[in-house]
Design a protein around this nucleic acid. Structure first.
Lengths: 151, 151
DNA sequence: AGTTTAGTGGCGAAAAGTGGGAAAAAGTGG
DNA sequence: CCACTTTTTCCCACTTTTCGCCACTAAACT
């Protein structure tokens, strides 16, 4: 399971070195082959290949009559890029994806169970603070309680 | 069961030595493996690994239905960090989490049954006093009666 | 008062993250 | 189809961070 927040830097070539603690697991699950795509919230998603293939299968089965489903499929499949861990544990983020997520030097890798999210540092903290602020004001529904998961 | 408040110090590297009375219990329950995450009230939560895994399982099932739940998942899973008791009974609090909870030198560890909360000393006393003051003013809902837990 | 145990601090070896150069490959235009 | 330019990939080197270990102080217990 991928967890936790990892502040990292992209180098000049757009490479991102994945934290060492995850590398072995990524090598076991799919030989270090990964798939990168975009998320609605302007971050990138990073899946181990086997996990992505499962999602891809479901995406393809989605009915083409529904226009929302077609749109989702086009977005996710259309932006999906294979990438591979290199010898020093890094992956290359293609320029178009970096631009989409506004990734420059400072980046945050966020573990999300079966996948990672990649945010620009600025984007991540902005998202977090706005969520916490909104929660405090009780504008939206409250968040569920953690232990019981009751709302 | 974890109870009580423990004033403690972080050292220069952000390490926190857990009170000796809890150590054996933490070693029994999950080999001293712990998970640290954040709480909305700007403190940290410290779970024994088995307890956290139960919560994590529920979190993952919860997602996709409700957008608030998705946000909660991103927040909690995204900030969850494994940590481990070291040889002298300490855990390392990662810098991003320390910053989130404004932890500097003086810290309070608060027992909460199946988990601990970690507050900055200042944050803890401020929270407590403001809660009591607000309760007295009858601004918010009153606190329930302790013995009956009726409102 | 001596002995033990808890909490704290800090050094140093090892590992992780980052940057850059050169070889290889791919793309582009004549 | 070949030559040139740009991009990609591989590899090595440097710097910083991390983590295990030991040492010190203070409090508690005998």
């Amino acid at each position: 399971m991928f967890r936790g927040i990892n502040p990292l830097s992209l180098d000049g070539k757009g490479r991102l070195s994945l934290p060492a603690k995850y590398r072995q697991h990524l090598l076991d699950e799919g030989n270090g082959q990964l798939v990168l795509t975009i998320d609605r919230d302007r971050c990138l998603l990073l899946y181990p290949l086997p996990v992505w293939e499962e999602i891809e299968r479901k995406l393809i089965q989605l009915s083409s009559t529904n226009s929302r489903a077609r749109a989702l499929k086009r977005l996710l499949l259309g932006h999906a890029e294979d990438c591979c861990l290199d010898a020093s544990g890094r992956i290359l983020l293609p320029a178009p994806l970096r631009e989409f997520a506004n990734l420059e030097k400072r980046v945050v890798l966020v573990g999300q169970g079966n996948k990672f999210e990649i945010w620009s540092e600025q984007g991540w903290y902005a998202w977090r603070e706005s969520l916490l602020a909104e929660d405090q004001d009780q504008h939206g529904e409250p968040l569920p309680d953690l232990d019981t998961l009751a709302f």
